[in-house]
Simulated scan of single mutants.
Amino acid sequence: MTDLPADIAQMSFEDALAELERIVRQLEEGKAKLDDAIRHYERGTLLKRHCELKLREAQAKIDRITVAADGTVGAEPARLD
Rank of each mutant, 00 (worst) to 15 (best):
A16K: 00
E28N: 08
Q59W: 09
R49G: 01
K48D: 07
L4W: 03
R39G: 14
A9T: 12
A16Q: 02
Q10N: 09
V67H: 00
G30C: 05
L55V: 15
I38H: 09
K61Q: 08
K48Y: 07
A9N: 10
E21G: 03
M1I: 01
G74P: 09
A32L: 14
A32W: 00
R64W: 14
V24Y: 00
G30R: 06
I8R: 00
I65S: 02
R39Q: 05
I62R: 04
A58E: 02
L20I: 03
Q59F: 04
A18T: 15
P77G: 08
E29V: 01
D81Y: 15
D36Y: 00
Y41K: 09
I65P: 05
I65Y: 04
A18H: 06
A32V: 00
V24E: 10
K48F: 06
L53H: 05
D63T: 07
D81K: 11
R56K: 15
A58T: 09
A68W: 00
A68Y: 01
A75D: 09
E42V: 06
E42K: 08
R64L: 06
R25G: 04
G74I: 15
K48V: 00
L55M: 12
A6N: 12
E52P: 02
L80E: 08
A16W: 04
Q59C: 04
A78L: 15
R56A: 12
A75Q: 10
D63Y: 08
D81I: 11
I65R: 15
I65H: 06
T2V: 12
P77S: 01
V67Q: 06
G74Q: 15
A32K: 03
E52M: 08
F13L: 12
E21T: 09
L17Q: 06
L46Q: 04
I38C: 11
E14C: 05
D35Q: 05
E21A: 07
A75K: 13
L20A: 08
A58L: 15
A68Q: 00
E76I: 10
K31N: 15
K54F: 08
E21V: 09
E28I: 01
L17V: 06
Q59E: 14
K61N: 14
K54C: 14
L47D: 02
G44C: 09
D3A: 10
H40C: 03
G74A: 10
E28S: 07
G71D: 12
Y41F: 09
I38W: 08
G44L: 12
I65C: 04
L53V: 03
D15C: 05
D7C: 02
R49A: 08
E76H: 08
D70A: 00
D3Q: 11
Q26W: 14
M11H: 01
E52T: 11
A58W: 10
G44P: 09
P5F: 00
K31A: 11
K33P: 13
K61W: 01
K48I: 00
D70P: 03
D35I: 06
D15H: 10
R64Y: 14
I8N: 01
Q59R: 06
A32E: 14
D70Q: 03
L80A: 07
